[in-house]
Design a protein around this nucleic acid. Structure first.
Length: 296
DNA sequence: AGCAAAACCTGGCGGC
DNA sequence: TGCCGCCAGGTTTTGC
């Protein structure tokens, strides 16, 4: 499920427990997820202190002292949960209720914080599309991350940059925005949401909003702004759920969102004065939700 | 080259 | 209740 905002929320949730903590035990309970675990997975991490938790697109990076960087991807169904020996709550972090199926607890990290508190961080992934790999130096040059496009966070992605990315492309906007080599971190939900906010059809040929001209420039500017805002809003929502609520399923990052179009087939479009209805179509084998009345 | 489908897995849900 | 087909928020590989 996780797209960039969910991964960022997971990162923030794990940070207070993992950063500065020492890994006293690391266990992979099966040989592989999507890919085999790295050679000496446990041995290379055990005993190390975690210096930082990072994120690039939908990848989580766990940096350890003098060691490899652990690159984690949650795939479609991966999640982390945190357990403490006494079940006490960790400030700023979800307290787990009851895990669904321990059968899919694939990786267990036992950590001791600088203050001596022990906790256990567990990676659960029923579908096993997730994976964990080592980067020996900076993760940016790892094959998995090297080709990624611009982050939709911050202000880097503006109309001019987006126009240059879309220029000459014949594919529909939906496909282009899902392409991690162009913009890194958008997934099926936030692409639908961003296109709705921008008033652009997911079927629209990408190159047509990148051509020179006033109208195209305005559209690429609007789309860039919509992408940035939808991501920023979702991260803010994750952050607030992290602060204020206990997760219903005890996992990090699966907070409740309210989407304008995603999974709202048949409902009235919420654009003021639009009067249209949300449709579900299939593009590249995946669901797209949009309003044909206000998205052109 | 570029784009669309298939493949990788399991679980949940609606329909019968 | 049970079985069956379909669907799922990601990425890589295959095929056109």
């Amino acid at each position: 499920m996780p797209e960039l905002p969910e991964v960022e929320t997971v990162r923030r949730g794990l940070q207070p427990v993992l950063e500065g903590a020492r890994l006293v035990g690391v266990e992979a309970r099966r040989p592989d997820l999507r890919f085999p675990f790295p050679e000496n997975f446990s041995a290379r991490l055990t005993g190390k202190t975690i210096t930082a938790l990072g994120r690039r697109a939908k990848y989580l990076t766990i940096h350890v002292e003098g060691g490899p960087v652990l690159i984690c991807h949650l795939g479609m169904s991966g999640s982390f949960r945190i357990e403490t020996p006494d079940g006490s709550e960790i400030p700023g972090v979800f307290h787990h209720e009851r895990s669904k199926s321990a059968a899919h607890d694939h990786v267990v990290f036992d950590v001791v914080s600088a203050g001596g508190a022990r906790s256990r961080v567990i990676f659960n992934d029923p579908r096993r599309f997730g994976f964990m790999l080592f980067a020996e130096g900076t993760p940016d040059t790892h094959p998995m991350l090297a080709g990624l496009g611009v982050e939709p966070t911050g202000n880097t992605l503006d109309g001019v940059l987006l126009a240059s990315l879309l220029e000459g492309r014949r594919s529909p906007l939906k496909a282009a925005l899902l392409d991690q080599r162009l913009i890194a971190g958008l997934g099926n939900i936030y692409v639908s949401e961003a296109l709705w906010r921008a008033g652009l059809s997911p079927l629209r040929e990408s190159g047509t909003i990148a051509k020179a001209g006033k109208k195209a420039a305005a559209q690429s500017e609007r789309l860039a702004g919509a992408i940035r805002s939808v991501i920023a809003d979702a991260i803010a929502a994750g952050g607030s759920s992290l602060r204020d609520y206990v997760q219903t399923d005890g996992s990090l990052g699966y907070f409740q969102h309210s989407f304008a179009v995603y999974d709202r087939e048949g409902e009235p479009c919420s654009t003021p004065g639009c009067g249209g209805h949300i449709e579900r179509i299939v593009q590249s084998g995946r669901s797209t939700f949009y309003c044909r009345t206000c998205q052109r």
